[in-house]
Design a protein around this nucleic acid. Sequence first.
DNA 1: CTGTGTGCAAACTCTTTGCATAAGT
DNA 2: ACTTATGCAAAGAGTTTGCACACAG
Lengths: 146, 146
Amino acid sequence: MREKLEQAGLRVTRQRMMIADLLFAKGDRHVTAEALYAEASVIPYPPSLATIYNTLRDFADKGLVREIALYGGKVWFDTQTGPHFHFYLEDREELFDIPEALIPSFDIPAPAGMRIAGIDVVIKLERLPESMNVAAPESATKRPNP
Amino acid sequence: MREKLEQAGLRVTRQRMMIADLLFAKGDRHVTAEALYAEASVIPYPPSLATIYNTLRDFADKGLVREIALYGGKVWFDTQTGPHFHFYLEDREELFDIPEALIPSFDIPAPAGMRIAGIDVVIKLERLPESMNVAAPESATKRPNP
DNA sequence: CTGTGTGCAAACTCTTTGCATAAGT
DNA sequence: ACTTATGCAAAGAGTTTGCACACAG
């Protein structure tokens, strides 16, 4: 953890260590600043909310986490910085990864004079009524926001 | 235009007509509330900013426009409600459609007990330095946020 | 020691809301 | 007439910032 910060050129402080621990200890995570703050707040002498925000931004700048495009409201951060897509469960405000295996190959050319700086794919999910709970998985065949 | 509002079950008011005109008169548009407000403000007796916000939300509720997932900050509205993906030009804060022809077929199954409520694909673009302006189009092969 | 990070509160930005007035049907 | 929309200003949510103090290198 310590090296992770040093490698990124960030000073190793108690707060940053604590935040890094929360983020990276238990595998991939998808968090908002508020959620992380709530989580940190059970620990004695937790970082302030402002520090959580600043730290998440610093981490994002250094490539330790990445920001995710989502509807209005809050900014999400993802500890997995590599290529992958997301499911978003609106009613629970939960964000999780789409298994790599399910991701189709993508080959959209950038317009002339531009380069692709990142791709964000978010598939919004809705919980089906109980009675349909065991229905066959639905497909998302090229149909953004039907 | 009038019928568009009536069909949606919205009262036809001067302000809503003005906003609908701005949105739908000149083909597909991608706007933020602020931008639309600025645009409307050149007209005598323009709608207030609050009304722009309320109207855009009403329009979105009735399916006349759709909301687009973008990084933090502002909410965007798109007059094209059908399935399509977007390029986002960060430095200019411009959003535009990806031609249908370029969009790959997508077939990601929803997890059991869920259905897909919408797909948002945003490809962030960066302007290349002048010297490379005529470079061959780059590809976005399955590489979200490299 | 020196410079950077932290905490707090206040500022800021974007969006929504309450309430009195205006306008549509 | 009756109901819904509008405008304004004020409130609200999320995020950033300024400044004094603390701490890592």
